[in-house]
Design a protein around this nucleic acid. Sequence first.
DNA 1: CGCGAGCTTGACGTTGTTCAACTAGAGTGG
DNA 2: CCACTCTAGTTGAACAACGTCAAGCTCGCG
Lengths: 230, 230
Amino acid sequence: MANNNGSNCHLCMQKSDVFKRLNHDELDAVNGCRVTIKYRPGEIIFKQGSPCHDFVCIVSGLAKLYIESECEKRIIIGFAKPVDYIFVPGAFTDKRHHFSAVACEETTACLVNAEVFQNILDNNNAFASAFIKKVSEQAIGMFEQLASLTHKQMPGRIADVLLSLSQKIYNANPFVTSLSRQDLADMSGMTKESAIRILKTFKDDNLIRTDSDTIELLNVPMLETISRNG
Amino acid sequence: MANNNGSNCHLCMQKSDVFKRLNHDELDAVNGCRVTIKYRPGEIIFKQGSPCHDFVCIVSGLAKLYIESECEKRIIIGFAKPVDYIFVPGAFTDKRHHFSAVACEETTACLVNAEVFQNILDNNNAFASAFIKKVSEQAIGMFEQLASLTHKQMPGRIADVLLSLSQKIYNANPFVTSLSRQDLADMSGMTKESAIRILKTFKDDNLIRTDSDTIELLNVPMLETISRNG
DNA sequence: CGCGAGCTTGACGTTGTTCAACTAGAGTGG
DNA sequence: CCACTCTAGTTGAACAACGTCAAGCTCGCG
């Protein structure tokens, strides 16, 4: 699919703190080399280890970002939702992807040539500053995840996942998700079976309610307590 | 202790990829507001949660960076050695420290006012680019640690710690360390007792040799295999 | 000599994984 | 419309990994 789908960077610009810093010429440069692609659920946007030629910006839908190790295990390190570009650290070092991105649902993404992006970064200070701020927020998120995964037991980790989905990803309380139990497990560093068991105890204690793809948090304060106590 | 200890930023500049990008005026600005402090082993350089007014650059010695949670547990997320400034993500967001830094041994650090630093970042593109590159490398390191901690069992995690100490921190094979067993445990997300047990099995299998503060890796290929197999 | 901090070891209990069986729903072809 | 299959979800029982607790050890230091 080519970059002629009617959308254009000047529209996205209004939604993204980072792209707001681009001037007209820069936006044109980005727009000019932009390619829009539509992904179906489960399709790979880019894969860990592959060379990274492009910066990816999620325009609609939701993408999960995860690290995979040789042992076939995954850990979801974050999500990208509209309008987020995905911070690809490899773009500044070894030109390889250090994690994979996969569409959770119908997702459209714009790919922008990495050199064009880099070029703007080198010349536009406000853009670089906004970029550093964004990267910093992401680093802080990683710290929290690291602490959650290493210091908390399973109920605390699942509580973290549920709260983060509701408050940071979907921004809704009964929320409809396209994530599988395996995805929830990959977010919280446990097996699918363990995740299911903890969810069941939460349901039995009336902390949450689930109905196919819908999850509702019935007792947020209690979940926060569980998160705090590990 | 004031900034008159004979050292000056023009000396450090030769050693740091990032500070190389500063021009004469910028270096003078940094040098002008710089404060050098000497820390004894175990002393706190800055503490998680405290406001961050300064950027910290380690000039000599070694500092460990760790996150602490309410449950009194710690996880060491990295080290800063000469000449590294410490990337403090909070400086760009909520102006708070999101991890603590503690001197492992006799350590001297230069503190530079965050606004001066920020100012240079906003005006010097090459510096900002080098900064982003540095931050990217750190992010990649965090990914590896996250994967190690969540996907590997204890022997693999200890192998990772030993290899990283030898190859990234001390750059030596028999290396002398000021880290305690608790520190090794905090790096690998386990208890002190567990870390000791794994080290003992490594010693029994002639993979390593320890003598008070000295650790020698006797069979690096085998340790790498253990790291790979988890 | 005695004290204290870090290190070491063993026994035991808990947490979380593995494996295997079973269920439910969605698509597919006859 | 009914098997059939395939995938995701669920449950239970056995087992392994890891933490906890308590005791003893070593070594430097006052």
